[in-house]
Amino acid sequence: MERALTLTTLGFDADDTLWHNESFFRRTGEEILRLLAPWCPPEELTAEQLAAERRNIPLYGYGVKGFTLSVMETAIRVSDGRVPAKVLGEVMAAGRDLLAHPLELLPGAGDALEALARTHRLLLITKGDLMHQERKLAASGLRGLFDGVEILSEKDSTAYGRIFARHGTAPEQALMVGNSMKSDVLPALEAGAWGVFVPHGTPWALEHAEAPEGHPRYREIASIDRLPELINTLRLR
């Protein structure tokens, strides 16, 4: 016999779940490969940059500023300190362009949130640079649909448990939606909530993780506009 699942709270990631993000980083990365080609082959440069980002996340956090600093560090490293100041200036300019890039909502994101806000408490749970994420949320036009906004330095099960408790929600009554298996789905499941994976583009290498196939509280949908339908059909057995 089935009984209806009581979901009171829906958490949403922001970048590449509600609006485009990684594609802009990739285009900027292609430009940086061109700038640094005289000192390093593309494959080696990509590996060096990824290693720098991994080292620097505990210091700089996630987002454009940490990315830009890691690229500059990589440029100095691969050129043995010979990279011209002009090239470093172009790297900085690329970072500023990323920060200033107009926001583009993913198709169906606004309509899905408007529909779900009528029946559920909505939380934005994202990570990255505080000022940049706040600017993007303001530009999205979605701020009024959220009952709470949480901008974190890292997403783990402890953080999710703390957020759900602060908003008066038991974990089993909460659901987290996002495009990162590592940050949005797995720690939410570990906290006792539901996790919905919405793949988008090619995920950043540092966010890769295997799907928890067979987990009773795990779901995957092709796009964010399918979420209202999923919420309406979810059941506990």
Rank of each mutant, 00 (worst) to 15 (best):
A4P: 09
L5K: 06
T6I: 10
T6S: 15
T6W: 08
L7C: 08
L10T: 00
A14D: 02
A14Y: 00
D16V: 02
W19A: 06
H20M: 05
S23T: 12
T28M: 13
E30V: 07
E31M: 15
E31C: 08
L33Y: 11
R34F: 11
R34D: 15
L35M: 14
L36A: 07
P38T: 06
C40H: 12
A47Y: 11
A47M: 10
A47L: 12
L50R: 14
L50G: 12
A51C: 09
R54D: 15
P58C: 06
L59N: 13
L59Q: 14
G61F: 01
G66M: 02
F67T: 07
F67E: 02
F67P: 08
V71S: 13
E73K: 09
I76E: 14
V78E: 15
V78T: 13
S79G: 05
G81N: 07
R82L: 10
R82G: 07
K86F: 07
K86D: 12
K86L: 14
G89A: 11
V91F: 10
V91I: 15
M92W: 14
A93T: 14
A94P: 04
G95F: 08
R96F: 05
R96Q: 11
H101L: 09
P102Y: 10
E104W: 00
E104D: 00
A109E: 01
A109S: 01
A112K: 01
L113W: 02
L113E: 00
L116N: 03
L116R: 03
A117K: 00
R118N: 09
T119A: 13
H120A: 01
R121Y: 13
R121G: 07
L122D: 03
L123A: 03
I125C: 10
K127M: 08
K127A: 12
G128R: 01
D129Q: 05
D129V: 03
L130R: 10
M131W: 06
H132Y: 08
Q133D: 05
Q133A: 06
A139W: 03
S140F: 10
G141Y: 01
G141S: 02
G141C: 00
G141M: 00
D147A: 01
V149C: 09
V149L: 05
E154D: 12
E154K: 14
K155E: 14
D156F: 12
D156L: 15
T158C: 11
Y160L: 05
R162T: 06
F164E: 11
F164H: 11
A165P: 07
H167D: 09
G168Y: 08
G168F: 14
T169A: 08
E172C: 04
E172N: 15
V177S: 00
M181L: 15
V185I: 11
L186N: 09
P187T: 10
L189V: 12
E190M: 05
A191I: 11
A191H: 04
G192V: 08
G192H: 05
G195P: 02
F197K: 06
F197A: 04
V198T: 01
P203C: 10
A205V: 13
A205R: 15
L206F: 11
E207P: 04
H208Q: 15
A209W: 14
E210Q: 13
E210G: 03
A211G: 05
G214C: 12
G214P: 09
P216D: 11
R217G: 10
Y218A: 08
A222L: 04
S223R: 08
I224T: 01
L227Q: 07
E229T: 07
I231H: 04
I231K: 01
L234S: 02
R235G: 05
R235H: 15
L236C: 10
